[in-house]
Design a protein around this nucleic acid. Structure first.
Lengths: 316, 316
DNA sequence: ATGAAAGCGCTAACAA
DNA sequence: TTGTTAGCGCTTTCAT
């Protein structure tokens, strides 16, 4: 395809003038501008983005590190990020890690080679010490809280949220309450859940915590295990509405009534929870994503807490 | 950050030699190679990607046009695409359109300005005539069938699949069967559903088709409408397992038994369907995505049909 | 208001 | 095996 020299030649002007009309600079006479535009249209010319990126030292592209894309929570985050990227005319590149440390680092290197202006980390497997050196090359924003001043944060206060829910359950008279998590102890959010639990109920009997829950099916399996205990839990806090849905389904299948026999509360206000009428705590992940994007492009390293809200339906 | 000239100077070699070690070219003596590598490590140097893209005329990045990211079906496609992109060391950029025609065209322009090597269209609002001119600038692959030879296709044979399901339902003795779709008549897949329906059942009473169904809640609402008809449908083919789940939920809530009073079959083998034991037709969207990606990077304009499979559970 | 020219950081053809 | 050099397509001083 034609380049800027070609346009300049055919329009009978210099490349600088062409560049000026391309970038809407002032101080271009109307006739020259028109002449240039005419040739641009005729030749169906578009400036080469790589050349512009090279000279401008920016790509207007940001990357999103996420373990999986086929997961409701990460999907909500991504959705928020995409919302803002459209408004701000940025591109976003998805960087799936499956929690592979090396992969994660290789993605961070895209900052170093100027392929990306910034990276949003929705979940990570490397520790901050390995990540922070890359802030030298571009903005890094996390969707979790961290003290490190180099990292901007758009986060939800999981601990408070978990505390709230467990307290609510306790107030309703539940003494044996179970909960599920996605990852195990290597995950900060699992650790926070456990801490909140202990804060409210004193101690945690290990069998009341089931990890590796992602789908409705996982929820059903967890319910099966939990509800065969004696005494069995009277309430469960699931790490997502799909998992909560699995609990609901299994409970019904063994003639337990929700919430009388089993109280259920999920997370993230997902479609299935709406359909099933499950109470949930909405961590507003879409907003978390939107805010993360805002931090990136405003080059801010602020720590921004996004409020959660408990949505009361009929399952607790 | 340092550039290739800096490395060359400090290593006491020419830039070509540096370039050669960077690209693992043969004909570099071991000592020079070592010297260069040493400086590269010391200076923590990484080649600038924009410069490489500029000269190579490729970005190793492909774009994925999709209406929404927060949708199970598109998510499966994206998942497949990401699977292959990791293997092939490509980046993928998400291009959300919300079915906005202009936005869609602006994304296609990223091919023209060399920002993207190729684009996968998972769903579109522009007609092919507007899209095809862009094949001049890069590969375009669609996740639907089209005759146009310029467009590679990784597609599912929706018509056959719909035909199969309706036939199955008919064989089971159902005469009044309803179905749901996402979009209305502007969508080819809706048109195909209707055509298959008419092929099997002769005519379609308009009230048996409900569009704009995306979530479980939409499914419940559709069920409410459908099941209050007289005579009411005895089977429903939902355009997704979440929608099917909504039907299931509503049917149970009014004491209808599945499948005796209402047979339900969904699509895409989603977690909720597994949890609820709903029969479904799995269009293998992950594979469709993977194949689309393969077509793009092998620069093939083939038409590849991905087989579907009906998964029999207990809801029909 | 316009143009000449010097890069941005890299690759590759050519020469040695 | 190595170096010189001419670009890739653009932006941006600096003159004029």
């Amino acid at each position: 395809m034609a380049n800027i020299n070609e346009i300049a030649k055919q329009a009978g002007v210099s490349v600088s003038t062409v560049s000026r009309v391309l970038n809407n600079h002032p101080y271009v006479s109307e006739d020259k501008r028109a002449a240039v535009q005419k040739v641009i249209d005729e030749l169906d010319y578009t400036p080469n983005r790589a050349a512009i990126d090279l000279i401008r030292r920016e790509t207007r592209t940001i990357g999103v590190i996420m373990p999986y894309n086929n997961n409701q929570a990460f999907d909500q985050l991504l959705h928020g990020i995409l919302n803002m990227s459209i408004e701000q005319d940025y591109s976003v590149t998805v960087l799936p890690t499956k929690y592979n440390k090396d992969k994660e680092i290789s993605y961070l290197n895209m900052l170093k080679n100027k392929q990306l202006d910034g990276i949003i980390i929705t979940s990570r497997s490397n520790d901050w010490e390995s990540i922070i050196p890359f802030t030298k090359y571009g903005m890094i924003v996390a969707c979790e809280y961290t003290d490190h001043p180099e990292i901007g944060c758009s986060y939800l206060d999981r601990y408070s949220s978990y505390l709230d829910v467990f307290q609510l359950l306790k107030e309703k008279g539940h003494t044996t309450v179970a909960f599920t998590t996605a990852r195990g102890l290597e995950s900060k959010s699992t650790q926070q859940t456990i801490a909140a639990y202990k804060n409210v109920f004193g101690e945690l009997r290990p069998e009341l915590h089931i990890s590796d829950c992602y789908s409705m099916e996982d929820g059903s399996n967890a319910a099966k295990k939990l509800l065969s205990m004696n005494p069995r839990p009277t309430a469960v806090y699931a790490n997502g509405d799909e998992v909560a849905g699995g609990f609901y389904q299994y409970a019904l299948s063994i003639q337990l009534k929700v919430p009388d026999d089993l109280a259920i509360i999920g997370q993230e206000n997902q479609p299935i929870g709406i359909g099933l009428g499950l109470s949930t705590v909405d961590h507003q992940l879409v907003k978390v994503g939107e805010q993360a994007f805002n931090l990136i492009i405003s080059k801010s390293r602020e720590k921004q807490k996004i409020p959660y809200r408990i949505i009361h339906r009929l399952s607790i």
